[in-house]
């Protein structure tokens, strides 16, 4: 996803000389092509996320579209009030980019696990929240984000993820959920890089005779309420999957829509069960430990369908 982001950004920077990328001293090997090609559109703010974010607001108020870039919780939680007061309240065109949503930096420890960011950023009025599921979605999301007014948050995974979509995602519009697979027994709704696990879980369920629909949400705020309500109204069981706390994040957003639409379906949320991860291991290891790898998603879904 990181490389898809850089590719998409490079294309945009070529067309828009006012597009400016600020890093909080991170991105070696990811952003290098950008700073070598567009040195006048690049700034290293140093290890100073609060001032980086305020600076981004100031730059945006001079007519620029400004991206801030860092990893994990650094571009969000460390400077949350600057995002709220300086960026969002002023309608500043600041696009906050996080590499490492969820357990990407698994072995590095809890400080590097971004597992509350969706909930927290989603709670800020005026902030659009993007959670692409694979590199193809990243390439579709970046141009939309750069044309979305005001402050946005882009939650990326890592480098080297496979594509789940069979080809490029074309004509994506803001807030639209993307159906990857149609099904009849259960809907698996997924936000972010966990999409690989969600899609694989659908394969495992199919092998056991369960037909699962897979829908990816590259944007969790705003969500297309109408389309989402239509999807969940077709099922008795809906499972939400996110590499994130179950409190306030993507699953909560789906529950809000379901409750408001009066559907009778049951929503089961897969994610961190309101705790911090304290286990050492790779992203995939942590997913399995916290019950959100493909196997766990399939097993838990099957149990819910059996009424357990």
């Amino acid at each position: 996803m990181r490389d898809a982001f850089t590719r998409a950004l490079m294309r945009e920077a070529a067309e828009n000389p006012q597009l400016t990328l600020i890093t909080g001293d991170l991105g070696f090997g990811v952003l290098k092509p950008f700073w070598e090609t567009y040195p006048n559109q690049f700034i290293n703010a140093g290890i100073a996320e609060q001032s980086m974010t305020g600076m981004a607001a100031g730059l945006a108020l001079t007519g620029r579209t400004v991206l801030t870039y860092s990893i994990g919780n650094f571009p969000t939680l460390r400077c949350l009030e600057q995002i709220r007061n300086d960026c969002a309240y002023h309608g500043a065109a600041v696009k906050i980019v996080c590499v490492g949503g969820g357990f990407v930096y698994g072995s590095l420890g809890m400080s590097h696990h971004a597992t509350e960011d969706i909930a927290i950023l989603r709670a800020l009025p005026g902030v659009t929240v993007f959670t692409p599921g694979d590199p193809a979605e990243v390439e579709a999301v970046v141009p939309v984000m750069l044309r979305t007014p005001g402050t946005c948050y882009l939650r990326l995974g890592r480098g080297g993820e496979p594509n789940v979509h069979p080809g490029p995602v074309q004509g994506w519009i803001l807030s639209e959920p993307l159906t990857l697979r149609h099904g009849t027994d259960v809907a698996l709704l997924s936000a972010g890089g966990i999409l690989t696990q969600t899609a694989e879980a659908a394969d495992l369920l199919a092998a056991r005779g369960i037909s699962a629909e897979v829908v990816s949400f590259p944007c969790v705020k705003p969500i297309d309420d109408e389309k989402t309500a239509e999807i969940i109204a077709r099922f008795r069981h809906v499972v939400t999957v996110e590499e994130h706390n179950i409190v306030g994040g993507f699953g909560s957003a789906i529950c809000e829509i379901a409750a408001g639409s009066g559907t009778g379906c049951r929503i089961h949320r897969i994610g961190m069960m309101d705790k911090y991860s304290a286990i050492v291991g790779t992203q995939q290891y942590l997913r399995s430990q916290y019950g959100m790898d493909a196997k766990a998603i399939a097993e838990r879904t099957e149990a819910w369908l059996r009424g357990e």
């Binding site: 700034i43 609060q50 001032s51 980086m52 974010t53 305020g54 600076m55 981004a56 607001a57 100031g58 730059l59 945006a60 108020l61 001079t62 007519g63 620029r64 400004v66 009030e81 600057q82 007061n85 300086d86 309240y89 002023h90």
Partner: peptide, 18 residues
């Protein structure tokens, strides 16, 4: 708009840099 302290100079840096 300000009110929470420690925000203004960073935004001013962004404006001046722009």
């Amino acid at each position: 708009s300000t009110g929470s302290l420690g925000h203004g100079l960073s935004v001013a840096v962004g404006m001046a840099l722009g």
